[in-house]
Design a protein around this nucleic acid. Structure first.
Lengths: 152, 152
DNA sequence: TATTGTTATACTCTATAACTATA
DNA sequence: TATAGTTATAGAGTATAACAATA
């Protein structure tokens, strides 16, 4: 019914991959830190959830366990994360951002935010406020879906 | 300076990968057509630009020539595209969507739009109008950047 | 037996470099 | 020589299935 919803959906299909490409380019070689978007997201997660288990990361990042495990492997090799066996439950691992991980993440985040801010600078303050509100709404929608995927 | 721009940029960093993941999931197995997002984008391009050359596709899709070539390979194998040598300039190829390609694309697009529309259905008509306008603005920003990347 | 991770395997996406064919 | 495309190669991302270790 809501034709407006359909129109927005069509716009989203066109713009989402382009936004992702832009984000990928800003985050990649030359810019700052040589992080891919999934690597960036993983570091952000472990910065917030210090000592988190792999399963928690996989769930929050929307990845399978093997995918998450491989990311952690890679980032541990690069010295951006540490992974150690949990003493109480030796099945679990506790993953933590290293000092260098923190630094690399800060650099990457700063560069990406600067790049997007520059692009967004063409919008008026009013438009930016509206955009911010809309992004908040979209985030809520995605989170709601994630929480109750079986809701009719 | 514009703090609002920075806030929007931060929101974008968080939401873009999630939107992309959602789009990927909607487009993938089970849903409709077994298309990946890049494959979907390629089909959309060739639907609009019938008989386009590979180089045109690569440029519009933001891909290297080999990447574009591989996508076309794959989609030709699946019978969704045809690729034939151009008579006038035998270096060029003319790529066209097949009937099946058209059908698969229509199915995938319909399913993805339906999925996003459903999510967006939680927004009010007013919010949808605002969102549509903002997505239009974002699209303009991305296009402007693409046109004059060296502009100060 | 159930849970937490890892390994094995396979496929897609992407890029750079080198190559072929045509102009 | 310049252009259009392909092939070779490599690395990241992802998933499912099978496995190991611990509870």
């Amino acid at each position: 019914m809501p034709d407006a919803a359909k129109r927005c959906a069509e716009q989203l299909l066109g713009i989402i991959p382009r936004l992702m490409q832009t984000m990928r380019e800003e985050m990649r070689a030359g810019r700052a830190s040589e992080l891919t978007v999934p690597q960036f997201r993983a570091l952000v997660f472990f910065q917030i959830h210090k000592g988190a288990a792999l399963s928690q990361a996989a769930e929050h990042l929307g990845l399978s366990m093997p995918s998450a495990s491989k990311h952690v492997d890679h980032l541990v090799l690069r010295g951006l994360l540490t992974r150690c066996v949990c003493a109480e439950d030796r099945r679990r691992v506790a993953i933590t951002l290293t000092g260098e991980g923190n630094a690399v993440l800060a650099t990457a985040r700063g560069a990406a935010i600067a790049a997007f801010s520059r692009k967004l600078g063409r919008l008026s303050p009013t438009e930016l406020d509206v955009l911010s509100a809309m992004l908040g709404s979209l985030e809520s929608l995605l989170s709601q879906e994630a929480e109750k995927p079986t809701a009719s």
